[in-house]
């Protein structure tokens, strides 16, 4: 199994940390992982993206140009990354902030209303975990228990009290995925 993922959105949405938690979850189940962020003179409100690869085998190139899954959280990222999903791959997006929905006919498309659900749960910071939950529902590449282990490992101890909230957010995301089209 090799899953090549791009997660893209605004800086401040938790794009990089979502990728990090996913990568850590892969480590927790003895898989090979790579996490390659876009880095640069970027700021809150600008674009941010991260390429995550989770594989049973040694990872060759951490820098790739086509993806099994694209998780897209703003319009700029939709424009940039919709064309990079492999035929038959997955595009998951939050319709909030998307003015032009994806048009590809050869990929599987799902939505999750991460921003709305996070607001309803009263904490906009768990937005990324809701989206992560939705992704794991579509592609259960890592087990929930390993995500929790990954969280425990990647979060400083003083934030461990927030793990149950994150778990709830993941579950919320899992329950609220909408299928737009499958191929």
């Amino acid at each position: 199994m090799t899953e090549e993922i791009i997660i893209a959105g605004f800086g401040g949405q938790g794009v990089l940390s979502m990728g990090k938690i996913l990568a850590y979850s892969g480590v927790m189940q003895d898989q090979e992982v790579s996490w390659l962020p876009s880095y640069g003179p970027e700021m809150r409100g600008g674009t941010a993206n991260v390429t995550v690869i989770v594989s049973d085998e040694r990872i060759s190139s951490p820098s790739i140009s086509s993806f099994d899954t694209a998780i897209i959280l703003n319009q700029q990222s939709m424009d940039k990354f919709e064309p990079t999903v492999k035929p038959g791959g997955v595009l998951l997006y939050d319709p909030n902030g998307i003015s032009r929905p994806p048009e590809r006919k050869d990929i599987n498309i799902y939505t999750v209303e991460g921003a709305r659900l996070a607001a309803e749960m009263g904490n906009t910071k768990i937005f990324n975990m809701i989206v992560l939950g939705a992704y794991l529902k579509v592609k259960p590449i890592v087990k929930l228990e390993n995500v929790i282990k990954g969280l425990r490992k990647s979060l400083p101890e003083r934030y461990h009290k927030l793990i149950p909230l994150n778990e709830d957010a993941i579950t919320m995301g899992m329950k609220n995925v909408n299928e737009v089209q499958t191929v």
Binding site: K20, A23, V27, E32, V33, S34, W35, L36, P37, Y39, I59, P62, S63
Partner: peptide, 10 residues
Amino acid sequence: DGLIGQMMEK
């Protein structure tokens, strides 16, 4: 280089 420096791996 910046790629090896910035990326995370096990």
